[in-house]
Write a protein that binds this DNA or RNA. Structure first.
Length: 259
DNA sequence: GTTCTAGAAC
DNA sequence: GTTCTAGAAC
């Protein structure tokens, strides 16, 4: 089967449960969520609108964002808002898993590639780390870089529907010539903008950025936990006494939070 | 995505 | 001289 149309065959399944469990994450009447076969971050899912869920839209209307945005505006918006709801649920699952596996939560991006590499509309739900063995070449990295322009956040796309009709017209063309050059831009860290000469150097740096984030977030959680314990002890020990003054933040805490 | 090759890095 | 990497070709 062609790699380019694999998503379409999933989206056309009458019974999504027949999709291998190593691929399928979950499905609803309207969508199918799969685990990306080549994850570009620690968590990377794709949400596909099911081919028969949006009559009279056809599988060719659902080929990509461009083809969808050419359809009746209300119908297109319905597909996207449904995907948005699904994404919200998936993000919650990812966050739970982040806490279970890594002990803290970090950002999750939800959006489309402006120029997709596979047939059938697919919404990326991807953790904001871009650390993965499958992240190999510049094109991979730049296609998810949140500040570059190639990656279109779903919220941005939804905001196009509230813009002027002429803006919607223009932006919904998603011209390849406009977006493809982003993929060739120099490698720069999405956290700190530092630039890198090659992928191995960038990947090493992204891992360091993630380690820093992990430390920062975990100590934040630790301070929160301590504070809550203290507050509880305080409440209990003073339960029979008169009103207690609010707890003051220790000096040390102020310092750490600014770092 | 994988394979091949030129050129950079070491 | 050998290894590594980016980019082109498929």
């Amino acid at each position: 089967m062609s790699a380019l149309t694999i998503l379409r065959t999933y989206a056309q399944k009458a019974d999504p449960a027949s999709i291998p469990s190593s691929v399928l994450f979950e499905h609803t009447a309207k969508s199918i969520t799969i685990i990306d076969a080549y994850p570009k971050s620690r968590f990377h899912f794709l949400i596909l609108p099911r081919a028969s869920a949006y009559p009279p839209l056809t599988v060719s209307n659902l080929a990509n964002l461009r083809s969808l945005l050419k359809c009746d505006k209300d119908r297109a918006k319905e597909v996207l808002t449904d995907l948005s709801e699904d994404a919200k649920r998936i993000r919650t699952c990812i966050e739970e898993e982040m806490v279970k596996r890594f002990g803290f939560k970090w950002a999750i991006w939800t959006g489309f590639h402006s120029v997709p590499s596979m047939e059938h509309l697919h919404l990326h739900v991807i953790s904001a780390d871009l650390c993965s063995p499958s992240m190999k070449v510049k094109k991979h990295y730049n296609s998810f870089h949140p500040k570059l322009g190639f990656f279109l956040s779903l919220d941005d796309v939804l905001s196009w529907f509230d813009a002027t009709p002429s803006y919607f017209q223009t932006v919904s063309q998603l011209k390849k010539t406009e977006y493809e050059p982003y993929l060739k831009e120099d490698l720069s860290c999405f956290h700190c903008s530092e630039s890198f000469k090659n992928m191995p150097k960038l990947k090493e740096h992204l891992q360091e950025e993630w380690n820093k984030m992990s430390k920062r977030e975990k100590s934040k959680l630790e301070r929160k936990r301590k504070r809550e314990t203290e507050e509880n002890e305080n409440t209990n020990s003073n339960a029979e006494n008169d009103p207690v003054p609010p707890l003051k933040k220790p000096e040390q805490e102020e310092d750490l939070s600014t770092k």
